[in-house]
Design a protein around this nucleic acid. Structure first.
Length: 476
RNA sequence: GGCCCCAUCGUCUAGAGGCCUAGGACACCACCCUCUCAAGGUGGAGACACGGGUUCGAAUCCCGUUGGGGCUGCCA
């Protein structure tokens, strides 16, 4: 083995996750990573992380860091790597050279234009026509190296999910191994690395299935070791049933992270896309997934990535957090919030946090639910205020609350009782009476339970806000 | 166009020939609970794409049709 790529001896399967650093981690890639991780853990194998950064034009160091960071955040660790293809160019060239010498590959100086023209002139569909296969070209500038696919016979892929898939070799084209500038291409690097890293199981997206016969033929030409087993996962699609697109669809895992999705929820939901447990228990943590997961039970059909259901799972996972953990996970979101840093009051937040925890689908929603505690002046929902201020009972309710709250014991229960009394006196339901008070004090019509909110806010600020609202109502 | 994959409620799935009057979850609707909103509880509507076989029996097996999707780069 070269370049620090080593082979572990003995035992279990070896899997790999091999993202290309072309952007941030895509949810589809995350699911592939998760499935690889689950299989490795479940079957007592090892997971290799490999960065497929052969295309220098694309790779960027920060992309790589971003991917590693998100994988770690998800809780998916790896046993080896990250290995980088960009450090192994010589190795790929060496294998390419062997393939040329053995006659398994040949040099080609056709330009893209020439290939297209020939196809058009002959009325064939576009694609390479093996023009140089018998020309006996040697290496040289502007010559790509192509693999000489057998003209006859069939190649069968044994897929753990789909069973056997057979391709006719004649249908495969003589794909390129090296670019005319000498740079190694995907299939070559992929196969060489899988061989050098002693990969035994390839678990990847279904979009790779048509590549697999080429992969196998190349593998055999290199002649290293037994072919890995394959498993091609169904695609993740959008509402239009198309492969998720980076442009149109929300696919960046780190965007979900930034919005306050929990890694537990993300893994749980992703696991359920293409696979389902045998019983009805769908909320599962990573180790439960490891215990139950099985590639053979993975579905064949594409799955819609449903952000709504993800959010539901996220809410479930948020509610499962113990109070201290919930507060800790909220911290980054509270720190980035729109109020001045010194306005944050940890005690007030702690008082209200349990009520908030039950009500949010993402951590970023916490900010809006507690902002009334920290922002000054209060942001008022003007549309709601305009409507409520016109209601005939509003001024009286506010005035009565102002008076009553001035000397009630400042805890949720007494506040509740006091407000109920006000409602009673006004001949209103508590639900009706609390609305103007809530709006005056929190600026919103919905939020955590009013009396908990009042308690957390404190008497002085609550009275102040009631005063201000009474004033506004009077001048309206 | 060619090659390949796929097909159970709107969505994600359970279902490996009789256990299916097709189960669960999200979303939806109603009711309950309730200081708003959520959460929770109860109930409801909602699917085996179609057509042929095979079989005593098919959502499950086979073939075809239709419909989706992927690949078809000197990208990965």
């Amino acid at each position: 083995m070269r370049d620090g790529v080593r082979e572990t001896r003995g035992g279990g399967p070896r899997l790999r996750f091999a993202p290309s650093p072309t952007g941030y981690l895509h949810v589809g890639s995350a699911r592939a990573a998760l499935y690889n991780w689950l299989v490795a853990r479940r079957e007592g194998g090892r997971l290799v992380l490999r960065i497929e950064d052969t295309d220098a034009a694309r790779g960027r160091e920060e992309w790589v860091e971003g991917i590693l960071d998100v994988l770690s955040w998800l809780g998916l660790d790896w046993d080896e790597g990250p290995y980088r293809q960009s450090t192994r160019t010589e190795r790929y060239r060496e294998v390419a050279e062997q393939l040329f010498r053995s006659g398994a590959a040949y040099y080609c100086d056709c330009t893209r234009e020439a290939v297209d023209e020939r196809a058009k002139a002959a009325g064939r569909p576009p694609g390479y026509d093996r023009w140089c296969r018998t020309r006996g070209l040697g290496p040289g500038p502007d010559r790509a190296l192509r693999f000489a696919v057998p003209l006859e016979g069939e190649t069968t892929v044994a897929d753990r999910i789909r069973g056997e898939v057979t391709f006719s070799n004649a249908q495969l084209d003589d794909f390129a191994l090296l670019r005319s500038n000498g740079a190694p291409l995907f299939l070559l690097c992929n196969v060489v690395d899988d061989a050098d890293e002693a990969i035994t199981d390839v678990v990847r997206g279904e979009d790779h299935l048509p590549n697999t016969p080429k992969y196998q033929l190349l593998w055999e030409a290199i002649g290293a070791r037994p072919l890995p087993r394959f498993a091609h996962l169904p695609m993740l699609v959008n509402e239009r049933r198309q492969k998720l697109s980076k442009r149109r669809d929300p696919v960046r895992v780190e965007d979900y992270r930034a919005e306050g999705y929990l890694p537990e929820a993300m893994c749980n939901y992703l696991a359920l896309l293409g696979w389902g447990p045998e019983n009805d228990q769908e909320v599962l943590e990573l180790d439960e997934l490891v215990a139950q997961f099985s590639l053979e039970r993975v579905n064949h059909a594409p799955a819609f990535f449903d952000p709504v259901k993800l959010r539901h799972f996220n809410g479930v996972w948020i509610r499962r957090l113990d109070p201290a953990t919930f507060r800790a996970r909220c911290e980054p979101f509270l720190r980035a919030a729109p109020w001045p840093a010194d306005a944050f009051d940890a005690a007030a937040f702690t008082r209200l946090a349990p009520a908030v925890q039950e009500r949010v689908g993402t951590l970023s929603e916490v900010v809006g639910m507690v902002s009334f505690l920290f922002e000054e002046p209060l942001q008022m929902e003007e549309a709601a205020w305009a409507k409520l201020a016109r209601a005939p009972e509003t001024p009286a309710i506010l005035v009565a609350a102002r008076a009553s709250y001035a000397d009630v014991a400042w805890e949720a229960e007494p506040l509740h009782a006091a407000t109920a009394a006000i409602a009673d006196a006004a001949g209103l339901k508590l639900r009706q009476a609390q609305a103007p008070i809530r709006l005056a004090v929190t600026g919103r019509l919905v939020g955590p339970p009013l009396f908990d909110a009042l308690e957390a806010l404190g008497r002085a600020r609550a009275l102040e806000r009631l005063d201000r609202a009474i004033e506004r109502a009077a001048t309206a």
